[in-house]
Amino acid sequence: MKNINVNFNLNGEDISIDCEPAKTLLDLIRDDLGLKGIKRGCEIGECGACTVIMNGEAVASCMVLAPQTEGANIITVEGLTSDDSLHPIQTAFIKKGAVQCGFCTPGMILSAKVLLDNNPAPTRKEIRIAIAGNVCRCTGYKQIVDAIEYAAELMK
């Protein structure tokens, strides 16, 4: 298949890249652009480990094909802060014990960011709904919900 050229903004940087049209955004980011923060858990949109923020929405990057990214604004966990410091959501995840194996964590944090960008003071129920597409097998979610609640406070 002939390669296509796609252009998008990733973590504040303009990207122009040639790739096969059937390539997923997940593969594009991990394999071609070398950012390994997003994870491959199922590749069929069921786990949320590959979550990125695309045009302000949390999406499963394994379900997005390269051509759909044309002109998009994409954020991964690497783009949460511009230097070595942590985003308040990351701080909150650490403080509240929301991290166990850590495989779901980058995606979970990005879903949380989209929620807090749109709703700075969510209820626990709203938090649960916002991360319902992100599966975590380790934590049972309670400490993750605690962390997002706490992050909202930190970001006030």
């Binding site: 966990v77 802060t81 495989f103 980058p106």
Partner: peptide, 28 residues
């Protein structure tokens, strides 16, 4: 990001592997 703390204060409740995991730097 607002009020970004430079580093999480060392506190006895913090897991040693958490920092690398929240920043996407853990190496699976």
């Amino acid at each position: 990001p607002v009020a970004t703390p430079k580093k999480v204060k060392k506190d006895s409740n913090i897991r040693v592997d958490a920092q690398r995991k929240v920043s996407g730097k853990a190496k699976f």
